[in-house]
């Protein structure tokens, strides 16, 4: 079911991770992703997986809930695996007609899959533990230097946070419209690619109209509540670095060191 998709959602709880400064979480996630690409061998993945497991434990978000986030990207995952499995040259392990699987291919496919899974789990953990507003505040604060280059940082951040708020609402709406059109005999499941794409019209048109209507309503509601951009705005939850944030930075530094060390193994 569409509404089962949990990626990008906030999971309310009261953990150390939830209380961390969003700037730390944002930069930490970025660092973590960079590390995943620095990893050279299985020791590195192991280190990353152990760290991630520990952080997940700290976050008090149920593991099953996080894993469900993977559902949304399963196609991407399969595609990556297939691509690496069949198209890597090297010592053949298995051959049938034009299909050839190599030892290097298996290694690469497994590594890519693990990397992708770790990446998605890690980054969705950030959204699970950070409310979109905090995320926006963090991003806004981190990207503030770009303001000098006339990048509308506040507006971009606000846009992101609103998008995140409306994802579950629009998903539910998609589900509803889909059912309504099915009740009118629409068929989303069978037929060739073109036919299926055509079948999406009765779903997408109402969905877009609804999204635009909501956007109009929301703009009016925001204006009515005196929203006029980032200028002169105060914060309900201003960002202040605390001791735990310093600790988090230290942990991240250690993690980076471990990953670099594993490259030598």
């Amino acid at each position: 079911m569409i509404r089962d998709i949990t990626i990008g959602q906030y999971y309310p709880s009261d953990s150390v991770l939830h209380r961390l400064d969003p700037r730390v979480k944002l930069s930490g996630t970025f660092l973590y992703i960079v590390c995943l690409f620095l990893v050279k061998n299985w020791w590195g993945y192991l280190a990353a997986a152990v760290c991630l497991a520990a952080v997940i434990k700290l976050s008090k978000v149920p593991f099953g809930y996080i894993v469900k986030g993977l559902k949304a990207v399963i196609i991407l995952l399969l595609f990556t695996v297939m691509f690496n499995l069949f198209l890597t040259s090297g010592t053949p392990v298995f051959e049938w007609k034009f299909i050839r699987v190599t030892k290097e291919g298996i290694d690469l496919a497994a590594a890519m899959a693990v990397r992708l899974i770790l990446l998605i789990l890690g980054s969705s953990l950030m959204t699970f533990t950070t409310t979109p507003n905090q995320l926006t505040d963090g991003l806004e604060s981190l990207l503030r230097p770009l303001n000098k280059l006339h990048v509308p940082v506040h507006e971009v951040a606000m846009m992101m946070s609103i998008a995140l708020r409306f994802i579950p609402i629009l998903l539910e709406e998609t589900d509803k419209i889909m059912k309504a059109q099915q009740a009118r005999g629409a068929d989303f499941e069978t037929g060739g690619l073109i036919q299926r794409a055509k079948a999406m019209v009765p779903l997408l048109v109402p969905l877009f109209i609804s999204a635009f209507r909501r956007a109009g309503d929301l703009a009016m509601a925001m204006e009515a509540r005196c929203y006029h951009g980032g200028k002169g705005r105060t914060k309900m939850k201003p960002l202040h670095y605390k001791k735990r944030d310093g600790v988090a930075w230290l942990v991240l530094a250690m993690f980076l060191a471990v990953v670099v060390v594993t490259r030598k193994l």
């Binding site: 709406e173 419209i177 309504a180 019209v201 009765p202 109209i209 609804s210």
Partner: peptide, 8 residues
């Protein structure tokens, strides 16, 4: 409910 939202 609100069937007008399915018009396309």
């Amino acid at each position: 409910q609100y069937p007008e939202y399915q018009l396309f």
